[in-house]
Amino acid sequence: MTNQRPDDGEIDAVTLDHLADAHHLASTALTWLDASREYFRLPRSGHRDPNNDFKPLGELALAASLVMRENTGGQRESRLAPTLIEFAWEELDRGTLLYEQQLRHPLLTDLMEIYAPFARAGYRHAPLEELLAHLTALRATAVPEMMPNRRLAVLNAARVIGLPLSADMEQVAERTWLGGTPEPWMIDWSTAYAVTHTVFHLTDWAARPKGLPKRLQEYLRAWLPVWLEIWLEAAQWDLVAELLLVDVCLEQPGYHPHAWRKLREAQHDNGMLPYGPHPTPERPEDAFTANYHPTCVAAIAGTLAVSRGIGELARHAPAVT
């Protein structure tokens, strides 16, 4: 069975232009996230929907925890990220709100996913961890009615927190859309998101590229450039940012400098990355609701691209004698 890649098409060199664009994207995105703190706050009273109310804080914590993990930003980023995660932790009553919701909804997995980046950054809640250890050991949580890419999110959260895994991640990956290496011309918008998340969780957000099986890496190296073109043309900036983040999760990223440039051009001066081609709502709170997610993705993707890029540059730098 041949697996020829005679004109395997990626630019292997890291370009300084793309590093500058990625750094700018991440740095200004963090600035916007920081300036948007008041919109991240939880409602002070009333019923809380554990599925949705905590999600923005969880994404903020994820972005901040990855900036802290990589520690390759400038001084400003290094200072901002810990204050953002501290803010989010305070909003969640230092984990107690997650704990209470988890007690109430024992089968709900979102809370564990939200907790994981805090745990990564050293914010721990002992009763919540005790509860999670109990729940994740039950057969009831080992057979969730859940899409395989979502299952990977939960498993990766457990791994980050340090809980035993209830399933083998590679086996779950086989059942994802990406795992089937399907006709690349059949992908659609929502399936593309399933693909990006499969990659994020298997590699723990680019920390372990080898967690993505070789054959899936080859598949993505072949078709990711096409998908990028498709969603660049459609100005789907959120998905473009996620696809670029996928690229950075590969053992051999393609880097795609032109896509970084377009993403940077799409970013507003204040650092907000619009979700897609539609006009941004005028009221700041509506703009926040529409665009906090892509801006978190921009912060993560830019940070990881800079981190990978610097690593590559260092690897190829001539030895100092």
């Binding site: 020829q4 005679p6 004109d7 098409g9 011309w185 096409v226 998908w227 498709i230």
Partner: peptide, 15 residues
């Protein structure tokens, strides 16, 4: 000589 470029072109046009 460029099957991958051809396949990418097909994929893009299909999408």
């Amino acid at each position: 000589h460029h099957p991958l470029a051809l396949a990418r072109g097909v994929t893009r046009a299909m999408l």
